[in-house]
Design a binder for these strands. Structure first.
Lengths: 266, 266
DNA sequence: CTATAGGTACTATTGTAGTGGTAATTAGAA
DNA sequence: TTCTAATTACCACTACAATAGTACCTATAG
């Protein structure tokens, strides 16, 4: 038998070890069995199955029937029972941690340092999401399709809250309202196909870097001049994009910029 | 400095190790700092702080500023970002496991075995809760105050769903409707102060054993005759309880039992 | 004598906690 | 000015505990 690895891994992330995960999932599959059978089914060494089953019972994942003197029969505790218990415990821990960290966290003594490095694809995306969640007034973005799709739920949620979203999207099929489009990158090809993204929230917090597909770092800043610079970059990009499609001249450019800027400040 | 142990433990249950937990919580507290300072604040050995901070950054809990050649300055990623990321990952795993286990679980080949043993206080309580959650028609219980309080939310929820609850409570201050009361145990003292509990759901699943305060096993059964026996035991208890308070005679006893039973089947 | 059944008691591996020692830079005290 | 102590950064270990995996043993039913 070969249970899918992914399940075992995930059971382990819920707190079981490899043998426990194997034993429990096998037991669920076969219903009721003695230790020997569970060992065969799960691939757990025969020599180990007895102590593993004992810890499984202690952990509340299996029930025993001690019928004949030295012959124990095991039945799985229904997955619902196990899952509900696990969820409750986890949510308790999570809530406690949430409160404890909130108390510790002091915005006050963060030093005035310009740019911090955020490492790792998942970490970068998580940080972007949080920025979007916390945005009140407006969000300015510039990103390619891949990043856009990762952040789409949060962008929409942001918009529904009445938070303005504007910026440029590159190669995006269905951009949300107020988002300019650079379609095929004719006028705006990045060197070496490196796709930048910028997410700026309320002009006070900004994350920028290479899109999540590459494994490069991203940068976080609350520094006003950095933010000004990058928001300005997006603004320019937006107006260029409009000019290109409207075939109009340079005079209109400045007035458009003003218009956009006033729209932000309302 | 001495951060409360509980927070560190719980952070570890969310996937960090001791050093990571110490480093992150200390970093949140002090805001921005170099590795040395974090080491002093957190109690992590100086010799280890550098690799710990590296993994912290990789895990997305800290941001670095690599200003001067060999002087890195760290700032905590806001707890919200960390917590949201952790929750998302956990919920993903949890949902996957839920589905995977549900698929594996086959009620079919559970053998007809009479009584299974459930070990461990927490496991017993969890199982009771699940029984109450799954009950549709009626629940019959007999329990003492301590167990009652542990199960009170689920009992109430059960009742709100329109599921009948009846039985006896021992030493319980505010029993919910349809629950008889044995107040001070004058007429019903358990030997050796051992407090039994019984939770029977829809006459098809039943868990009984010593109350959670002792560390004894509980027993689970789906066997009809076991369930009949124990439900009958509760019924007798109920009528005796009523008789005692009403000071009436034995003839009424049988008619009361009938009344109760008809009430169940409706 | 082979498959089933139930073990004891190890070894190996890995992740983590904790220590010893090195070396460079900086801030004050002699 | 020179010496010293504190601060900072780092390598390379040891120690320990949890987990994974192995060697070997007995007993019984067919």
């Amino acid at each position: 038998m070969q249970l899918e690895n992914s399940i075992l891994d995930k059971l382990q992330r819920l707190g079981l070890n490899q043998y426990e995960a194997k034993a429990y999932s096998s037991l669920l599959k076969i219903g009721t069995a003695n230790a020997y059978k569970i060992s065969k089914e799960s691939g757990i060494p025969r020599a180990r199955i007895y102590d593993v089953m004992e810890t499984l019972t202690d952990r509340g994942l299996a029930m025993v029937e001690e019928s004949n003197e030295n012959a124990k029969i095991y039945t799985p505790v229904p997955s619902k029972v196990f899952l509900e218990k696990t969820r409750k415990e986890w949510e308790n821990d999570f809530d406690d941690v949430t409160n404890a960290l909130r108390e510790l966290e002091t915005e006050a003594n963060k030093q005035e340092i310009y740019v911090f490095t955020v490492k790792g694809k998942q970490n970068i995306v998580s940080y972007c999401r949080q920025l979007l969640k916390e945005a009140n007034q407006y969000v300015m973005v510039s990103m390619w399709d891949q990043m856009y799709e990762l952040l789409l739920p949060e962008l929409k949620e942001c918009q529904n809250r009445g938070c303005k979203i504007l910026g440029v999207g590159h190669n995006i099929r269905n951009p949300i309202a107020d988002m300019e489009m650079h379609h095929d990158g004719k006028y705006h090809d990045m060197p070496e196909k490196l796709h930048w993204f910028i997410v700026s929230a309320d002009g006070s917090k900004l994350l920028y870097g290479y899109s999540a597909e590459t494994d490069r770092d991203a940068f976080y800043t609350e520094d006003a001049s950095h933010i000004y610079l990058l928001e300005d970059y997006i603004l320019h990009d937006m107006v260029v994009s409009r000019l290109v499609s409207d075939k109009e001249n340079e005079e209109k450019l400045t007035s458009m910029m003003k218009e956009i800027l006033e729209n932000i400040k309302e």
